[in-house]
Design a protein around this nucleic acid. Sequence first.
DNA 1: GATGAATGAGGTTTCATTCAT
DNA 2: TATGAATGAAACCTCATTCAT
Lengths: 196, 196, 196, 196
Amino acid sequence: MESKSKPKYKLILDAAVEVIAENGYHHSQVSKIAKKAGVADGTIYLYFKNKEDILVSLFEEKMGQFVSKIKHEIDQTEQADQKLYKLIEMHFSQLSEDPSLAIVTQLELRQSNKDLRLKINDVLKGYLALMDTILQEGMEDGTFQNQLNVKLVRQVLFGTLDEVVTNWVMKEQRYSLVDQAEEVHYLIYNGLRDHS
Amino acid sequence: MESKSKPKYKLILDAAVEVIAENGYHHSQVSKIAKKAGVADGTIYLYFKNKEDILVSLFEEKMGQFVSKIKHEIDQTEQADQKLYKLIEMHFSQLSEDPSLAIVTQLELRQSNKDLRLKINDVLKGYLALMDTILQEGMEDGTFQNQLNVKLVRQVLFGTLDEVVTNWVMKEQRYSLVDQAEEVHYLIYNGLRDHS
Amino acid sequence: MESKSKPKYKLILDAAVEVIAENGYHHSQVSKIAKKAGVADGTIYLYFKNKEDILVSLFEEKMGQFVSKIKHEIDQTEQADQKLYKLIEMHFSQLSEDPSLAIVTQLELRQSNKDLRLKINDVLKGYLALMDTILQEGMEDGTFQNQLNVKLVRQVLFGTLDEVVTNWVMKEQRYSLVDQAEEVHYLIYNGLRDHS
Amino acid sequence: MESKSKPKYKLILDAAVEVIAENGYHHSQVSKIAKKAGVADGTIYLYFKNKEDILVSLFEEKMGQFVSKIKHEIDQTEQADQKLYKLIEMHFSQLSEDPSLAIVTQLELRQSNKDLRLKINDVLKGYLALMDTILQEGMEDGTFQNQLNVKLVRQVLFGTLDEVVTNWVMKEQRYSLVDQAEEVHYLIYNGLRDHS
DNA sequence: GATGAATGAGGTTTCATTCAT
DNA sequence: TATGAATGAAACCTCATTCAT
């Protein structure tokens, strides 16, 4: 039951992350979220169209911050392979620092239906575009091979990161996720660069 | 309403795949599966403990065949990189040939609760072990670098395959999945082999 | 479909008595009770934990009134044998006046499972204690023999009342129950008093 | 899974008593009874019309023996008050000797519906008639008062016996039921005899 | 007579959403 | 804005009974 002067909108989203991480997606009733946020059930519907809208908004909000932080770091980095490293490292570090969010994104939100997952994918597009940019840059400046199938490589990259984080979450975060950044970067980069 | 002389067990599992692929996990009532299988609702419970058991059995059955087919092919292949290629190619081809199954494994089955997901992970272990074997072999015979972190590489491999298939399913199978095998193999293999 | 301004809690309990008396315990679905009470099915669960809780509450509520009315009358009576008579007479008269309740307590509620029956027995304890008090008093002031086994006599008394009422209910209330009070009192009292 | 050469009819009834006493009325499925009797589910229906018929037959069979044993003893007794004592004592002793039957008759069979209970009451009529005979005899020979309302007295007697046995069953048979026969007889007899 | 695989009707409870206040 | 009491649709599973063998 947080409160202070935070706008109710944010209050509700933060409550949602906590409630879902604690109870799992299917046991996260609207009434539970309302209680944790310190508002009435009905109030939720003044700020969100329906339950799904809470989840999409939650993902938009968190993912927006997630991506913009990575973008900011990358903009201060020169070489494409360094940018790739930064992306991997920050992907891991940000989720490491917010385990509740990690549980929600890696496990709980996937239990939602197809419609919601399509909307979530929309939100992800910004992140995927960022990956594309790095790859494109690297191809152009010779860091990576120049005939890469960007869409496919992006799937390799995203699929890898996603799987590594999910494994870490399912193993209950018993080891350092960030420590794996270097090795993951090596494997991906090694696959992408020109060895000729 | 299929029937012939198929044992009811198989009849029900096949019906379940179709119904789930058509209607989505959460709209796949037991009664719908029973109808499609051409049996009474109660008959389901002569063969399965409960609804979840249908799903676990479905996954066990299909995944068992999936893995054993790949294993069989790989046993007839010599070099580790060729085995890796076979695995990727057959992973893609088998799911290409059974789009209903692909929809179920990539999208619908993930909507299940944590318990079910843990059971599904158990079933996956056999497949992951197969990957480990290939990697180990390749490290020993010099096909791959010999200091690889097998567990991590396996996550790169599985994460990549999973993501590529999911993308293909979400894009409604509008392109050839198998055609991507070569490129995926190249990227992974390139990341693993020794370039010195 | 009653309503007026009665609180829903009471509305539901009254509906439950009627529905159970009419349809029998096993054909008294929650939805039937809800309809008779003029509320939605879900509303029941705002006031009661589950279906069993309706029954326990019903019994507590009705039995509470039942006993307290008898207690009140008895407190205004002097002699133990007169108190005994009052108890018998009011036991009969109260059930006579509410035949639905009589059907429910004598027949339908006994069809419940062991757990529920234990809870019902708990509720009965207050009534049995009242009987004990009367017996004790009568033994002390010489109305009854002074070496009675109170627990056993109470079983004779309660068993008799219960059987007489059940017979009346099963004979579809075709005769006056209250008219039997005097004779029952005579038989019991005659058995208890000192004839020396 | 008994067998030998017992006819299946008896085999099934004996199994029914055991199963109901062990599992309670509501958890005594026909299939469980069949298994305990060592026959197939369908076989039950060669000997009994339906499930209810098993219970009625069970009660008829056991109650028939119960009553005829009491009758036999009573026929060898002269005085009405001694016959009353015999009836009480044997009522208690027979149920003491077969606790499974006691549980079934006092607790489990009462969970059945109204129809079944009416049939059970039919079976009881023979026993109640026996009580009537004793009372009638006693009234005629002056052992009891001669203006008794036989039907009502019989309810006092049966209600008392039933309640005393039920209490003993619910207290898990932790004391001697037969030891209470004398006291119960005294209370009833004292209520019935002429003190003038 | 005996089997047992198959049937299919039936009911409690949850929870997202509304709307009168 | 905010409330929270009320709504009502929706589905898994059990088990008495049947009937082809």
